[in-house]
Design a binder for these strands. Structure first.
Lengths: 119, 119
DNA sequence: TTGACATGAAACCATAAGGTATTATATTGA
DNA sequence: TCAATATAATACCTTATGGTTTCATGTCAA
C-alpha cells in the first residue's frame, strides 16, 4: 500500500461523518456562519436530540468545533477534518482532475504573458 | 441552502462508499491497476463475499466500474464518483485550502525556470 | 462434455447508525 | 430564588451495515 496510510487513519472520523446527507447539510449551514444548535434544528424536520447526535459525530471527525458562550454552545466549521479528506482524495486526483491541469495551463499562459510584457 | 444541492445528491453514493476503510483500501489497490476480485481478496482478511459486497457499493457510488473479460470480471477505478466528491468538498475549500495557492506558486516558479532554461 | 476454477447470489447474524421520547442539568433575568 | 430558556444525556426502537456460510452459475481446457 505504501502511501496514504497515515492520512487515511486520521480521516476515518471525517469520512464517516460525511457519509450522512443531514450532516453534510449541517456543514453547508455552518459554512454561512457559526451558530448554536437551536438555529440548526429550525432547518431540519428532526428532533433536537437527533441534530445533537450529528453534531457529536461531526465534532469527532474534526469537521466542526464547539465553543461555549454563556448558556449557548456555538458550533463552528473546522477546516482540519475537511482538509484531511481533501488530502486523501488528492492521492487520486491524477485519475480525473482536469482542474489541476487546466489551472496549470492557465497559469503558464498567464506567466508567459507577464514575461512577454516585461520585455 | 442554494449552492451545492444537486452535486450533493449525486455524490451521496460516493460519500457512503468512502465511509468504510476497507473500501478506501480497495480504491488504493485499484489505483495501482485494474484487477479481478480474486486479486483483491488476497489483500484482505475477509471472505470473497464480503469483498464482493464492498465492490457493489463502490460501483453504486461510481467509484469503480466492472468489465467482463472471459470468465473474469475486472474492477477498474472510475473517476466520476471521486470527482463529484471533490467538487462537493471544493465548496468548502475557501475555509482551509492552501493547496491551490501553493500549487500556483510552485507552477509559477517552475514555469519561470523552464523559460530561463530556454534562453 | 466434464471437471476445475472464477465468480455471483441468497439466507442469516451481530452490531452500528439514525431516529424518537423522556429526563436531567446549567445559566440568565426578574 | 425561581421560572424560563438552552442544552445535554439516557433509554429505547427500527433499519442499515459488514460480515459469514452455503449454494448456484458460467467459462475455460483437456
Amino acid at each position: 500500500m505504501s502511501s496514504n496510510g497515515q492520512s487515511d487513519a486520521m480521516s476515518q472520523g471525517a469520512f464517516r461523518a460525511l457519509a450522512d446527507p443531514t450532516r453534510r447539510r449541517i456543514l453547508m449551514h455552518l459554512s454561512k456562519g457559526e451558530m448554536p444548535i437551536g438555529d440548526l434544528v429550525d432547518q431540519f424536520a428532526i428532533t433536537r436530540a437527533a441534530v445533537k447526535k450529528h453534531l457529536v459525530i461531526l465534532e469527532e471527525g474534526e469537521l466542526i468545533s464547539v465553543h461555549q458562550r454563556g448558556r449557548e454552545r456555538i458550533n463552528r466549521l473546522e477546516p482540519k477534518g475537511l482538509k484531511s479528506v481533501s488530502e486523501w482524495l488528492n492521492y487520486f486526483s491524477r485519475f480525473w482532475d482536469d482542474r489541476l491541469s487546466d489551472l496549470k495551463a492557465a497559469i503558464e499562459t498567464e506567466t508567459e504573458n507577464q514575461i512577454q510584457r516585461k520585455k
